[in-house]
Design a protein around this nucleic acid. Structure first.
Lengths: 112, 112
DNA sequence: AAAACTGGTAACCTGAAAGTGACTAATAGA
DNA sequence: TCTATTAGTCACTTTCAGGTTACCAGTTTT
């Protein structure tokens, strides 16, 4: 691809939360710091491997932070970073557009 | 998935333009109505099959419209619909967030 | 002494999306 | 007569994010 993905700020941004489960994970963490197991319970049907994977990517992108306690059995907590929190208003914008566009489509249909 | 995709307005919205090539296509059409071949030239390295596919999906979602002329060789023109045009401000928002967040990260790095 | 607890990892499998190359239709031009 | 033209389609292969299952470590509980 000549129009490189990373050249496009929109594509780059969507890559941050576009993964299969990232949005639900971010949503859960936006309300509370959570342990691995707590996230897993709240995103039903996600496997450990995939959850680990998505968390690592979110961490690598600086959206969440991981704190590991030196205990056994292990305890690891995930939290939205300040940077991660700045994403929330954007997500709200996107949701707002969707609601608005649904209205638009409804009006168009009603006028037929 | 129990947290259904279609339940989430953000996921639903991203699905509209999140496809591999949809953003570049929308960007191209935001500047001009274009024929199939013109789009293909402007998105280098995309194959006909995939381009057709993405165009069909964009059309099904109401973002673009397809006008076929009864000529030979065939001529087909694609245009952003009014609905498609409402997406532009949102994309600008997303790009703005990215620029802002890059600034934020730069500041954080400089202060180390 | 066995089992449960937690947050993983390793090895393997799978399905959908993406990519490839050949083929088509009807006319205009060489 | 042969070729080029455009917007696809068809059949096939490749790729890889995502999914499944089994296993681990070290302490506490039964």
């Amino acid at each position: 691809m000549e129009l490189n993905d990373t050249d496009c700020p929109v594509t780059a941004t969507i890559a941050l939360f576009g993964g299969r489960w990232k949005l639900p994970i971010l949503y859960i963490l936006s309300k509370n710091t959570r342990r691995f197991g707590e996230i897993q319970v709240r995103v039903p049907s996600i496997s450990k491997k995939v959850l680990t994977n998505q968390l690592r990517e979110l961490e690598a992108d600086g959206l969440i932070s991981r704190k590991q306690y030196k205990e056994l059995p292990p305890r690891v907590e995930y939290t939205l970073t300040e940077f991660g929190k700045t994403l929330c208003p954007l997500l709200i914008n996107i949701a707002a557009w969707q609601r608005q566009s649904m209205d638009m489509l409804n009006k168009a249909n009603n006028s037929l």
